[in-house]
Amino acid sequence: MSEQIKTGSSIKKIAGGKLVRVDVVYYQKIDCVKITGDFFLHPEELITFIEESLAGAEIPLSEELLVKRVDAVLQDNHATIIGFSPADLISVLMDAVK
């Protein structure tokens, strides 16, 4: 089975915003996601919550569902992202699993 596990990576400079890079490991569903870049997130430690919120999502990905997941993490934790939107992030993720 291990040969079926895939990895992907995508990077995008958001217009008027910051650089976001997504590295993903997946097979039929997302195993793990790492989000890096020169953006800001307050509080910073929430980045792992966002990454974990995306794990388990089935391929093909539902853009709408994943944006809602990220929105929920941000709202539940009164968090602020500067440099990209949840929709930007999911767009980069979807590029990474193509």
Binding site: I35, T36, D38, I47
Partner: peptide, 9 residues
Amino acid sequence: IGFFQGLLN
């Protein structure tokens, strides 16, 4: 490097 940046990147 920024808090969220990948060191090797």
